[in-house]
Every structure is written in structure tokens, then in C-alpha cells.
């Protein structure tokens, strides 16, 4: 689904219907959560499904309740997969601009935001704005911001891979 649609949804629901402030990080966060939810859900489902039924049977056969079966066996085994999905979802949200345009997170912000409801902007939008500025100083700023953004993306994806390798169990 095109991410701009989530921006429209956020605009309609969070701003117009729920009357939350424009350009606010809370709203941006909620819109991005909605957008990454499918990724996270799909990977979590796949991870849960990949736990072999024989393990579930073993737990139930020993007299574990359903809750105990899930908490003690299924979730720990599915955890690496769920974690990977979550990190990838977060990495995806990190570079997203389109849905945030719709909720007004493109304004030129002078002050450092002091809270979740203060107007603010996001890194990709900031890069876009800076790259447009004719002043010489902004070239470096743009480059630095881009480097930070890419660095973060690489870091998070690497973290996902490492964690996955580390806690993954084989049988």
C-alpha cells in the first residue's frame, strides 16, 4: 500500500477527527506505527507459525495451560523472528517522508521541540528542506544529515541480523 495513504488516514482521523495538533511527533509516530503495523504483524505471524506443532503438543501433553504453552515455549521460540520484523519495520519508518507530509511535519521549525505535541520535523524532511537551500553552509548540513540517516538504517538492519543469528535456535 502506498505510504501516502497512511498520511491521508492520519490527516483525516488524527487531525480532523481527533483534533490533535498539526506537525506533532505523537501524530507522526502514530501514522508511522499504522504504516509499519502490517510488516510487523506479518513477520510476527510467520515467526509464531514456524514454531513446530510438536513443541506445542509437548507442552500441552505435560499439562501446561494454553497461556503457559505460549508464554514459556511459543513466544521465546518466535522471539527472534518477531524482533527482526519489528526492527525492519522501524528501519522502514525511519526513512519515510510521504505520510508525514500530509500531517504537516514539513514546516520550517526554528525551535527545538520541547514535548510530544510541539511542532517538529523529521530527518528526511529536514534533509529535503536543506538540500533546497541555496546557501553554501547547507550543503554540508545536508550531507551530514544524510550520513546520519543512512548510518542509522545500516545500524538497525545490522542489529536485526546480529540479534537474529544470536538468539535463533536450531532443531
Amino acid at each position: 500500500m502506498p505510504s501516502i495513504v497512511f498520511g491521508l488516514l492520519g490527516l483525516a482521523v488524527f487531525l480532523n477527527f481527533m483534533n490533535l495538533p498539526r506537525s506533532a511527533p505523537v501524530v507522526g509516530g502514530m501514522v508511522l506505527s499504522l504504516m509499519t503495523l502490517p510488516t510487523v504483524i506479518i513477520s510476527a505471524r510467520a515467526a509464531l507459525k514456524s514454531v513446530p506443532p510438536s513443541i506445542r503438543e509437548a507442552a500441552l501433553g505435560l499439562g501446561a495451560s494454553r497461556l503457559q504453552m505460549v508464554a514459556h515455549h511459543v513466544l521465546p521460540l518466535a522471539f527472534p523472528g518477531i524482533l527482526t520484523g519489528t526492527i525492519i519495520g522501524m528501519a522502514q519508518a525511519l526513512g519515510e517522508t510521504a505520510p508525514l507530509l500530509m500531517i504537516g511535519m514539513v514546516a520550517f521549525i526554528v525551535d527545538v521541540p520541547g514535548g510530544f505535541t510541539d511542532p517538529s520535523t523529521v530527518m528526511p524532511v529536514q534533509i529535503y528542506l536543506w538540500s533546497d537551500s541555496p546557501e553554501r553552509a547547507f550543503v554540508e548540513k545536508t550531507a551530514a544529515a544524510t550520513a546520519i540517516l543512512i548510518g542509522f538504517l545500516v545500524l538497525m538492519n545490522a542489529l536485526a541480523v546480529v540479534l537474529r543469528k544470536k538468539i535463533e535456535r536450531k532443531w
Binding site: P52, S54, I55, E57, A58, A59, L60, G61, L62, G63, A64, S65, H73, L77, R169, K170, W171
Partner: peptide
Amino acid sequence: VVHLRARIGMVFQKPNPFP
């Protein structure tokens, strides 16, 4: 059922130890 399964244990066809 939990109590019942504590009184009646089960061993399956395929060995299924917890990892």
C-alpha cells in the same frame, strides 16, 4: 484439563524435546 494431563502423561511418535 491441566490436572488431568498431569495425571496422564504422553510420549509422542517423534521425539519432541524442548530446545
